[in-house]
Nucleic acid binder design. Sequence first.
DNA 1: GCGTCCAGGTCTACC
DNA 2: GGTAGACCTGGACGC
Length: 305
Amino acid sequence: MPGFNLPTPPDFRFWPSVVSHGWCDLPPFRCDEAMRILQRIHQLSDGAVVRLTMPAAEAKAGSITVYVEGIDSLTETQIMEISRGLSRSLEIDRNLTDFYALVSQHPRYAWIEQLGAGRLLSAPTVWEDLVKTLFTTNTTWRMTIQMTERVVTLGDSYTGGGHAFPTPQRLASMSVEDLNAHVKAGYRGDYLHLLATRIANGELEVESWRDADLPSDEVYKRVKALKGFGDYAAGTMLKLLGHFDRLATDSVCRTVYKDSINNGIAAKDDKEITAYYQPFGQWRGLVQWMDVMEDYFKGDQFRTS
DNA sequence: GCGTCCAGGTCTACC
DNA sequence: GGTAGACCTGGACGC
């Protein structure tokens, strides 16, 4: 089976980055927690649909091993393309030095650097992250998984089973009615179709939103301008795009604030939660997410890799 | 099996 | 700027 080693920086921890939030359970990712393997059905720009497999057991200091199925051999161009996508997904180039320095001042957050947490798994494309984030709004996590599973079946097939994430062009080519009959996204179906159409016809260049020179406020404004993306969804997208100066307060965050931070007393409103995270400045969004993940990361089932 | 209630964010209309 | 009600799905519950 073809494969290659993807270089990683000294502070990179593979498994904490994989299970950093629920994205690893949403297709075309697949996460085997028992075996500690991350897989993804991935479509290359030349049209080939492959399956990437990354075992935590083979992630060592300085690199992770990526196996590629569904193709006889790999060209340098394909390796570079896969590497670029995975580097983005695993935030391999994210510099967390300032973040770790900040949280190290708070005993409550000492565990974050110790476990190597802080990188968030995202999709290789902004388009895919937008769709999945839309599917997290006003619904349960179980429904988010089901909507994602259904939309992914619209992508090109992998010979070994499964599908790559569909392109915006594919969704835009369907009628709103057909798309929603398939995806069952409810009222979100209109927003999904509109998003796909605007990207497909060139009106929106969402992949450029990853540009590191784009100010956080500008990215936030652009995401909020999308139908279906309110404060929570925009805050979530900003984290996935590498900006952490916004919160993404949802029902889970409110519960965590009440139970883990505020001695069982619910915040009187979201402003109270915002005020708590204010001292963490440009990293406040990441600190808030670390609070949500704390129990999982500290649980018996978790071991750093 | 059927009906009702509920949870989850965002949008729109209205004040 | 703040608030109420609608949006949609599917699980839980009562009958």
